[in-house]
Write a protein that binds this DNA or RNA. Sequence first.
DNA 1: TCCATTTTGGTAAAATCTACCAAAATTGAG
DNA 2: CTCAATTTTGGTAGATTTTACCAAAATGGA
Lengths: 151, 151
Amino acid sequence: MVEEQDEKILAELQKDGRATNQQLADTVGMSTSACWRRVRALEESGVIEGYSALVKREAAGFATSAILHVSLERHDTTFVDEFVARVMQRREVLECFATTGDADYHLRVVVRDMDAYNKFLDEFMFRIPGIRHVRTNVILKEIKTGVALPF
Amino acid sequence: MVEEQDEKILAELQKDGRATNQQLADTVGMSTSACWRRVRALEESGVIEGYSALVKREAAGFATSAILHVSLERHDTTFVDEFVARVMQRREVLECFATTGDADYHLRVVVRDMDAYNKFLDEFMFRIPGIRHVRTNVILKEIKTGVALPF
DNA sequence: TCCATTTTGGTAAAATCTACCAAAATTGAG
DNA sequence: CTCAATTTTGGTAGATTTTACCAAAATGGA
């Protein structure tokens, strides 16, 4: 489905999401029209889900972030669906993964300051029904925050 | 430093990193030239670190991912710097955070399959000097993988 | 208030995007 | 292998967008 030439395109568009079609065509060794059509196909088929500006967190005023380990009391669809639905619409929750291991879920949360984080816990997280346990791991340092798949 | 109008621009460029300057100017209510200059300033000052295409992981052939909890034996700069340097150049490691809590670091790793993950552990992770403990939490489901700061 | 500085909106040339075309490459059946 | 059907390619041109410049408006410090 995704061929080698597509991977080159994807790799390049991950590195520079605003590369012009001509730059792209050059770096992957295609004509502009062929390249443009493949990009379009990747977008329409949903392989490319979108494009985003990557904004420097501290510069934008988000000083605090944490990784939360969350466990649920029970794993009925009712509880799980409710949890997922709530997490999806909270924009402070950048990431959420269901994982093996001690916790059911790993969440990454980004907020402006500790006050906002405390509020997030009290007014959102602790009010989700069926939460058994929440452990906060404050992020001391962001070593790496990548989005590019390792083609 | 980052004003309200800049936040609007950043929010929009996070949602659509390829929005044309005209679209942007419309949605934030500015003239195209003023808008364009602000975007340029945000890029040059480093508030916008770049742009990236967001690629659907499974469609691109990366079936397996995990969150690793890593602890070091000692926390001398020598060991820490070595760990950080190695992690930085491994493209399978999409994210790495130094955190409070039981583990020193949280890593998110993305690979094509379990074989590749096993190889990643054996040939990379377990060979980093000064590693005390590595716990793998396999990602069963990606509930949410966002990059947009919650302006 | 007044002057200096910054930010703004408008404009036009250069660059880019995007939809078309015919030609080339690929595929599959006989 | 051959040939026709289908897909993919490169080239082109009009429409759109980017980008550098200008004078006017807004800002803010003394």
